[in-house]
Amino acid sequence: MISESLIGNDPFSEPTLMTDDPRLLRITSAQPYPLLFATISGAHLYGFPSPDSDFDLRGAHILPLERVLGLEVKDETVEDSRIIEGLEMDIVSHDVKKFFSLLLKKNGYVLEQLYSPLIVHTTPEHQELKDIAKGCITRHHSHHYLGFVHTQWELFLKEQPPRVKPLLYVYRVLLTGSWMMRTGEVEANLVTLNESFRLSYLPDLIARKLNGPEQATLTDTDLAFYRSEFERLRAELEAAHQASSLREAPEESARQSLNDLLIRVRKTQGILS
């Protein structure tokens, strides 16, 4: 595997070269196991990072054979949250077998991580995995987004006064889910999504979030409006699920291709870099 630092715009296209903070590259290269890929998720991916937003580094790593052949498999998930080189980092990666297994379930998180255009580390196998994963997107991924948005909405309501940031997460989830049901594509950037959905209030909410905490709370009048929008968009997501022409289950060819890729990666792990 050859590591590159890349970024792209279309989640299903070839990425293009990026120049980014070299600390991210050093942090990524210091991870305990070889990486199939590493991308940035969270507010940076969603299109509304604040100057103090942490970096959510997500990826898939490759455990050595001796770690996966025994009775107990350790480090299937590696997590690390701390300040590194002055950057607030939240790092989560899954071993490739676990990551591939999650792709075969209605898990929107791993799809968003895989197709994130904010790529810090990539390999030829990363692009191969993105090609395979197109066959794993199903209409039942809507259940992930409907369940996730319920949790996000409850978190938003618990805060007093209610804040803009969790509200943006609510709308991001709803629009990502609806877009996937309509197009079969993975798009997590709220700014990009709104080019199609054209919600007139989103640019102001995003600007308030970016401008700092003093503008990032909402009034009771705001809350009534945004509740009605939440209910409307949730109903649209449910309708998009019902109308979706996406497959009911991952393609069998995608399952077989994931199995073949996993075996190949395991066999060559000793020479990967």
Rank of each mutant, 00 (worst) to 15 (best):
G8T: 07
G8F: 11
D10Q: 13
F12Y: 13
L17M: 04
M18R: 12
T19E: 15
D20I: 15
D20Q: 15
L24D: 01
Y33S: 05
F37P: 00
G42H: 04
D52L: 09
L57G: 00
L57M: 12
R58Y: 05
R58E: 09
I62Y: 02
I62E: 01
R67M: 05
V68M: 08
L71W: 09
E76R: 15
T77S: 13
E79S: 13
I83E: 15
E85S: 13
L87K: 07
E88P: 10
E88Y: 11
I91F: 15
H94K: 11
H94A: 04
H94P: 02
D95G: 03
K98D: 07
Y109C: 03
V110K: 02
Q113D: 10
L114I: 09
P117I: 05
L118I: 08
E125F: 11
Q127S: 12
E128Y: 10
K130D: 02
D131E: 14
D131P: 02
D131W: 05
A133E: 01
K134N: 08
G135I: 10
G135S: 09
C136W: 00
H141T: 02
Y145H: 10
L146V: 10
F148A: 06
V149F: 03
T151N: 14
Q152L: 14
E154H: 13
E154V: 12
L155G: 13
Q160W: 08
P161E: 10
R163Q: 15
R163I: 07
K165S: 06
P166D: 05
L167G: 00
L168I: 09
V170S: 02
R172A: 00
V173T: 11
L175Q: 01
S178L: 14
S178R: 02
E185H: 11
E187D: 07
N189V: 01
V191Q: 14
V191L: 14
L193Y: 01
E195S: 05
S200Y: 07
A207I: 04
K209L: 05
L210R: 10
N211H: 12
G212D: 11
Q215G: 12
T221K: 11
L223G: 05
E229T: 06
A240E: 01
A240S: 14
H241G: 02
R247S: 12
S253L: 09
S257L: 07
S257Y: 04
N259L: 09
D260F: 13
L261Y: 09
L262A: 08
K267W: 05
T268Q: 10
Q269C: 04
